[in-house]
């Protein structure tokens, strides 16, 4: 049985990645997963300059989900290159850097830095963070805005370019098409859904930013629908995510047309879940007599 998949030039030993912002830099999970069992990890959103993120409180649990408003807290691209890259480049799995910015120049600058890092075979361009002003979502909500960032980054970035799409749009298919047209090698979706939670007794929002991004099982049907629609419309590989917490959930995304999946919020409930999902996909394939991941298709 062959679990490997290909995203642009990026070879993954299996279709399971961990989602940006839910897996730190991987090392936080060293006690819980064998990196040899993961297709890859997408590390924390990295911006050109350090960001403190949003004030506490940044998280609220909601029915079968959670809202977060972390706001891209990170120490900046230079710090990543000097201090984090030497560590993550030793991990025995593919390491993809999620790149975020507030201007096209920021994205280009970070992408150019990542292009020089030998052990980073791909970046995931975050044009969909709902938690910072001009946190990329401004670009991600129109086909023109999305295409303009991707085009500019494509000029300086030679390796596999994945673009992470926002679900907070009228027509995600139009944006996916625009991004493909502009030179993306893959699209990943969905980022979090913009949401809100209120404490009725205290009569206040639960997040310092009032609104935040919803993730977890609650968003899965929306994510599946969008992955299905986008996979029908583009010819580049689609990476599906949104509420996956079991191998069956992951298989559903593959059936909807995804080539690979990312595991996000579920890492918080079971820090070993990504590895278990990779095993579970293999079990599913064995049970159905499938040889390759691409055999996981709808009847």
């Amino acid at each position: 049985m062959d679990l490997s998949v290909r995203i642009g030039e990026l070879e993954l030993r299996n279709p399971v990645l961990t989602a940006s912002g839910t897996f730190g830099y991987g090392t936080e999970y060293a006690d819980f997963v064998d990196f040899n069992c993961l297709g890859g990890i997408v590390v924390k959103g990295t911006t050109l300059h350090a960001r403190e993120g949003n004030p506490y409180p940044r998280m609220a649990e909601t029915p079968s989900g959670m809202l977060n408003a972390v706001g891209l807290q990170n120490k900046g691209a230079r710090y990543f290159v000097e201090h984090i890259y030497p560590v993550v480049s030793e991990l025995p799995t593919q390491v993809i850097v999620n790149v975020s910015g507030s201007t096209i120049d920021d994205y280009v600058a970070v992408a150019a830095m990542m292009n020089e890092l030998e052990r980073i075979p791909a970046i995931e361009l975050n044009i969909s963070c709902p938690n910072v002003k001009q946190g990329g979502m401004a670009f991600g909500v129109t086909p023109e805005g999305a295409a303009s960032v991707v085009k500019a980054v494509r000029e300086v970035y030679a390796k596999t370019l994945i673009v992470k799409l926002s679900p907070n749009v009228t027509d995600i298919v139009a944006i996916a098409r625009a991004v493909e047209e502009a030179g993306a090698d893959s699209v990943s979706l969905i980022n979090t859904l913009l949401g809100m939670a209120i404490d009725a007794e205290r009569r206040r929002p639960l997040l310092s930013t009032v609104t935040g991004g919803l993730s977890g099982p609650a968003v899965k049907p929306v994510a599946l629908r969008m992955v299905w629609q986008v996979a029908q419309a583009v010819s580049i590989p689609v990476i599906g995510m949104g509420g996956i917490r079991t191998a069956t959930d992951a298989v559903e995304f593959l059936l909807a047309g995804a080539t690979a999946v990312e595991i996000g919020t579920a890492n918080f409930i079971d820090p070993s879940v990504s590895q278990k999902i990779a095993y579970g996909i293999a079990e599913y394939m064995a049970r159905h007599g499938m040889e390759r991941v691409s055999d996981i298709t709808m009847l």
């Binding site: 730190g24 924390k44 004030p55 506490y56 998280m59 977060n68 918080f268």
Partner: peptide, 26 residues
């Protein structure tokens, strides 16, 4: 502080310290 992962990955439970936001869990 309200936390999710407990291992310093999600950056939800931060406290505003003199060194900036740091994870209470880690």
């Amino acid at each position: 502080n309200r936390m999710a992962c407990g291992i310093g990955a999600c950056l939800c439970c931060v406290e505003d310290t003199k060194e900036g936001n740091v994870c209470v869990c880690k």
